[in-house]
C-alpha cells in the first residue's frame, strides 16, 4: 500500500501540451487567476502610482489625468486592473477564510470558488459602469 502511494508521484508536473487537455477545476481557476491578477497589478504599479499622482497633484495634472482616463486604451487597461483588483480581493477573502479553516473540504471549496466568480465578475461590471 505504501509503495502504491509512492508510485503515484504527487504533485504531478504537467507539461504544457497536456495542460491543454487537462480541465482545471473551479478552485484551481480561482487560484491561477489570483496569481495572474496579482502579477498584473504588480506590473502596472508604476502606471497606477503615476495616474494617482496626476489626479491629486494640481488642477493641470488633474486635467491631464482626466484626458488620459477618457481615452480608450487607458480605459481598457483600467478595466483590466479593476477586474484584477476585484478578483484578487474576493479570492483573497476566500483564502483568508480557508486559513482559519472555514470551507476547507471539497464541496464547500467548490461552492466558495463559484462564489468568488459570482461576486467578482458582477462587481467588476458595476465598477466599470461607475468608474469608466
Amino acid at each position: 500500500m505504501a509503495e502504491m502511494m509512492i508510485k503515484k508521484e504527487r504533485p504531478r508536473n504537467l507539461d504544457l501540451a497536456s495542460l491543454r487537455s487537462y480541465k482545471l477545476p473551479l478552485p484551481g481557476k480561482v487560484s491561477i487567476f489570483h496569481r495572474v491578477s496579482g502579477a498584473g497589478l504588480f506590473l502596472m504599479l508604476p502606471v497606477i502610482l503615476w495616474l494617482f499622482q496626476a489626479s491629486v497633484t494640481s488642477p493641470e495634472t488633474f486635467a491631464v489625468f482626466q484626458g488620459l482616463v477618457a481615452s480608450w486604451p487607458v480605459k481598457l487597461i483600467l478595466a483590466g486592473l479593476i477586474w484584477a483588483y476585484a478578483h484578487h480581493f474576493c479570492a483573497g477573502i476566500r483564502f483568508l477564510l480557508m486559513d482559519v479553516h472555514v470551507g476547507v473540504d471539497k464541496p464547500q471549496a467548490r461552492k466558495s470558488a463559484a462564489a468568488v466568480f459570482a461576486v467578482s465578475i458582477p462587481l467588476s461590471i458595476i465598477l466599470w459602469g461607475v468608474l469608466l
Partner: peptide, 17 residues
C-alpha cells in the same frame, strides 16, 4: 528595488498634498 522606490514615490505624492 522597485517596491522600495514605489514606497518613496507614494510618500512623496501624499506628503506634497
Amino acid at each position: 528595488a522597485a517596491l522600495v522606490g514605489y514606497a518613496a514615490w507614494a510618500a512623496a505624492i501624499l506628503w506634497r498634498l
